[in-house]
Design a protein around this nucleic acid. Sequence first.
DNA 1: CTGAAAGCGCTTACAG
DNA 2: CTGAAAGCGCTTACAG
Lengths: 343, 343
Amino acid sequence: MAAPTRRQPTILTVAEHAGVSRMTVSRVLSGGKNVRPELAERVHASVAALGYRRNEQARSLRPGQRSGLIGMAITNVANPYYGEFVLGADEVVSGSGRGLLIGSTSEDEAKERLLIADFIGRQVEGLIVVPTGARRHLLPGALGGVPLVLASRAVAGVRADTVLVADVQASYDQVSALIEAGHRRIGFLGTMTSVFTGQRRFEGFRLAHEDAGLELDDDLVLVGQQDVESATVAMRSLLRRADPPTAVFCANNRNAIGAVRALLGASRRARGAKPTALVSFDNFELADVLGIPVTIIDHDARDLGRQAASMLIGRLDGADDGLPQTVELSTRTLDYGGAPQLR
Amino acid sequence: MAAPTRRQPTILTVAEHAGVSRMTVSRVLSGGKNVRPELAERVHASVAALGYRRNEQARSLRPGQRSGLIGMAITNVANPYYGEFVLGADEVVSGSGRGLLIGSTSEDEAKERLLIADFIGRQVEGLIVVPTGARRHLLPGALGGVPLVLASRAVAGVRADTVLVADVQASYDQVSALIEAGHRRIGFLGTMTSVFTGQRRFEGFRLAHEDAGLELDDDLVLVGQQDVESATVAMRSLLRRADPPTAVFCANNRNAIGAVRALLGASRRARGAKPTALVSFDNFELADVLGIPVTIIDHDARDLGRQAASMLIGRLDGADDGLPQTVELSTRTLDYGGAPQLR
DNA sequence: CTGAAAGCGCTTACAG
DNA sequence: CTGAAAGCGCTTACAG
């Protein structure tokens, strides 16, 4: 009792319906140049009557034709940050008449490799990747010449267009400001150490200490937290110390939200204690109304997506054929009572 | 100076390299049945040496072959809720060896229509749509027989597999609980009235009033808020009234976050006022640690994505060829000091 | 177990 | 302005 799979009309169906050749139909479909208006009219009518839609797979089979597909590999689609990122990329990609093929890698190098191989098999015109860090399957040989743009993170040894955030500088600036304000024991909550942004944000943290002549206490550096739950646990362990940090730097919004959770939980028990100053790399909802001193290092994830897609489309449409470029998006600081002077 | 577009190796390149016919290569690639092991070996070696990858577009051109593509049209990718949704769908879709083609509609019917036409032109095997509400382009005729699953929302007059959340029941239950607790003036913050879930959640709200014999005050019903900013404004206007509501029902997490922002902003000015009880349809981060009485009607968006994708894959792989089905996912209640008794 | 022929739906030259 | 022929990269029958 399965419904009969009605065969889609092809260009031939339309041609017969309109009483013209397939070529005339093809010409009308691709702009209508050099076709008698009357015939074009007939073809359009037949297309509408039959509900015909050109088969893009067949069309793109011809050499020189493009698939109109962009492959996008994201580490974690569930992070709102990457939701915004996808939206920005989609704006630009669909604006260029192409479509976005999306897959999630979950920071898994093997998944990333398979996903990219799959994308290439599907003839994507280009790739936008938030890389896990693995290198080999991103080399030009492995990609078969398909243009690649890396977003958020670079990969050592891979020369490709890259859009980054000014991780090191922004982290350096905010940690320096904490030290300037009198903080001497500053905690660090970070992601897996293999994550590029995590490394860079830690580097800014470390340099700020070094330049201030301040010894860095490794006991206050907790890394490996990829989600809110583990970040909450990590923050609690910092707060439970005999000599807890007076400020904590969070390397992404997952860690910041974990820190907030731990602080708000703790503050009910221990009211009156000095508030712990928080710095969060990446914004998060409600950050400004929590009543916790928090400084946000903010940038527009949607804009990051737009930039990455623009670089790629620029390559595809030949607007840019120079050497691979790296763009660093600058950040801005949102101060919600953060980094208060220590008495 | 553009890099020479190196031509991808084809099945013929591999055949020549391995010294066999294209058919033998094809057989090896599709499982290796009925091929002498020695030849299969040679083919595999050539594939690796040349970095060959089968052109899926060409492969799926043959009748009976599938494209391996699922089209997914989402109303708002930037909403974390749909980020989770995409992740769940991706799990199931990529698990079936297919890929996800994603586009954002921004609640725009025209965009949805174009997106779906594009998907069909790209020969998607099936569609997962969070519908804006428009009907015509979702009818079987317009889809040319491509299976469709609707998620989150149904469309009147469209018979398709549908995964919904128990909007009416859950809203009814929570609003009834508010009334039971003594609330008489309950606000409603909702989305555009054209949004299906908004209608259903309002229906639960209305029914709870009706069954309790309580008159519904239209002045307390504010709809049309699609983002946090407009929701904040709406909540402020409720709070500013001479006789403000003692509880507010928020039809989605955008409205709930707006309400929280307005409440936390207001509470600094007017401490000591009776706290406004909040009910939020959909969870949001930090809801449990805000110190605001809030009840969450929660469900797993990732699971919604999984279910929608599973229904679709079931149709595609022939596991299910019955009449269109509608599944309602049940919700659970998370109580963070919400709906307190009124004195 | 292996291969030569035909065709999927489309478009690019080439003729008229 | 219009169309018959050839071919994109692959796989499905059909022969051996």
